[in-house]
């Protein structure tokens, strides 16, 4: 083979590789995951496909959701183990952002910044996003976590080996290793309740109706109505997780 053609084919190869990687990078930046588009373009199937809506404007930060979740699902009462919790974001006049979540908000919030220094303050309740492309499910080596046909991400605690890959994989920090069971644990959207037709504990207990859950396939349903009437965003769209937890009035500062 002559030297010239070999050189040119190598150059061609390198060019193609550069073009492909560059193209992928650019397309991921210009076309990140869009929560609303994903909600409008649902996977094929019958029956409910659940999503969650949280209205930050309505949340009063009482933390009753976090408390009810611990009671309902036997989550250890000590801090650091949460399936659901509330954060208080405070943006100060000097541009500093303070995020607090004392015991997940269960014991209530005490305002740590005096009124005159605050530019804006708001509560952000957090929980599993029940992603439609869940990274936690992709990494599980034994198939102990999965997405049901209703779009709920569950853990099979009898099959989990407690390796903790999923805890690392979740970009929202929604998983933990249960200190007694030594298996992964997370929000199940109260699967034992929704399968009986009752709302999840956190949604039922919310005193200001700031949290709703509903069927994204039901065009007349509460959640679709919520998405139509509010400006909703998902957390970390750049992660392309296919999050189905939609926040109304979500500020860009929330991570």
């Amino acid at each position: 083979m002559n030297l010239k053609t070999e050189k040119s084919s190598r150059r061609k190869f390198l060019n193609t590789v550069a073009l492909l990687t560059g193209g992928l990078l650019v397309s991921s930046v210009t076309k990140p995951f869009n929560g609303l588009l994903a909600a409008s373009n649902k996977p094929e199937g019958n029956g409910p496909w659940y999503g969650i809506g949280i209205d930050i404007e309505k949340c009063i930060g009482c933390g009753r959701c976090a408390n009810a979740c611990k009671e309902e699902n036997d989550v250890p009462r000590v801090p650091f183990y949460f399936r659901s919790w509330v954060e208080q974001y405070t943006i100060k006049n000097d541009g500093e952002i303070i995020v607090e979540s004392p015991n997940g908000g269960i014991d209530g919030f005490t305002q740590s910044v005096p009124d005159e220094d605050i530019f804006k303050s708001f509560f952000v309740p957090k929980m599993c996003n029940h992603c439609s492309k869940p990274p936690c499910v992709q990494v599980c080596p034994v198939g102990a976590t999965f997405e049901t046909k209703e779009g709920v991400v569950l853990v099979d605690s009898n099959y989990c080996i407690g390796c903790g890959y999923c805890v690392q994989a979740c970009p929202y920090g929604c998983r933990y290793i249960h200190p007694e069971k030594k298996t992964a644990d997370k929000c199940s959207l109260c699967y034992h309740r929704i399968s009986k037709g009752i709302a999840p504990a956190c949604m039922e207990i919310c005193p200001n109706d700031a949290r709703i859950f509903g069927n994204l396939r039901d065009k007349e349903g509460e959640l679709v109505k919520f998405l139509k009437e509010h400006t909703c965003h998902v957390l970390k769209p750049e992660m392309n997780t296919g999050s189905k937890l939609f926040y109304n009035a979500l500020n860009q500062e929330v991570k």
Partner: peptide, 18 residues
């Protein structure tokens, strides 16, 4: 799917407390 089908029933059977 790539999981134990029984796990769905185990998750369903938990106690409703509220």
């Amino acid at each position: 799917g790539h999981y134990r089908g029984l796990a769905i029933i185990e998750n369903e059977n938990k106690q409703v407390k509220y």
